[in-house]
Lab assay of single mutants.
Amino acid sequence: GTLHLNGVTVKVPSLEKAIKAAKKFAKKYNLEVQVHGNTVHVH
């Protein structure tokens, strides 16, 4: 999967790991997580 954090793109081995990391990051910075196919966006 691919993880987008505020314009930074990170390749992640699995989508589940990407979503987990995204949710952790989003919670910390009070951001929103959106999943588009195998790409996770945090903004």
Rank of each mutant, 00 (worst) to 15 (best):
G7N: 08
T9D: 05
Q34V: 14
L31T: 01
L3R: 03
V40Y: 03
E32N: 09
K27A: 10
L15E: 00
K24D: 06
G1M: 10
Q34E: 13
N30C: 14
V42A: 04
V10A: 04
N6V: 09
K27H: 04
K23Y: 10
K17E: 11
K17T: 07
F25Q: 00
L3N: 02
L15Y: 04
T2P: 04
A26P: 00
K20S: 08
N38C: 11
K20E: 11
K20Q: 12
H43D: 04
E16Y: 10
N6R: 09
T2H: 12
L5A: 05
A26Y: 04
V35Q: 03
Y29F: 09
N30H: 12
K23H: 07
L5N: 02
V33I: 13
K20D: 08
K28S: 02
N30G: 14
S14I: 07
P13L: 11
V8S: 05
I19R: 01
N38K: 07
L5M: 10
F25E: 00
L31E: 00
T39H: 15
V40I: 13
I19T: 01
T2E: 07
L15R: 02
V33G: 00
G1H: 11
G7W: 12
F25I: 06
T9R: 10
K11Q: 10
V42K: 03
L5V: 10
G37W: 08
H43K: 10
K20L: 11
L15W: 06
H43P: 02
H41R: 13
A22G: 02
V10F: 14
T9V: 14
A22R: 01
F25G: 00
H41T: 14
K17A: 13
E16M: 10
V35E: 02
K11V: 10
S14E: 04
H43I: 13
K20V: 08
L3Y: 01
E32L: 11
V8C: 15
V35W: 08
V12S: 03
T2D: 04
A26Q: 03
H4V: 14
H4E: 05
Q34T: 14
G37H: 06
L5F: 15
H43A: 09
K28W: 11
G37Y: 05
T2A: 08
G1C: 15
K27S: 06
A18W: 09
H36W: 09
N30P: 02
S14L: 06
E32A: 09
A18P: 00
V12Q: 03
L5C: 15
V40E: 01
K27T: 06
V8N: 06
L15G: 00
E32P: 03
K27F: 04
A21V: 11
T9I: 15
G37N: 06
V35R: 03
L15P: 01
N38I: 11
H41C: 14
A26S: 03
H4I: 15
H36C: 12
K11H: 12
V35H: 02
K17P: 01
H41L: 14
A18C: 14
K20I: 12
K24G: 04
Q34Y: 14
V33M: 06
K17M: 13
E16A: 14
K20R: 11
G1L: 12
V33C: 08
N38R: 09
V35D: 02
H41W: 14
H36S: 10
H41V: 13
A18G: 02
K17V: 12
K27G: 03
Q34F: 14
H41K: 08
I19E: 00
T39K: 07
G1I: 15
Q34D: 06
G37A: 05
V42S: 02
I19M: 06
K11R: 13
V10R: 07
T39Q: 11
Q34R: 11
A21G: 02
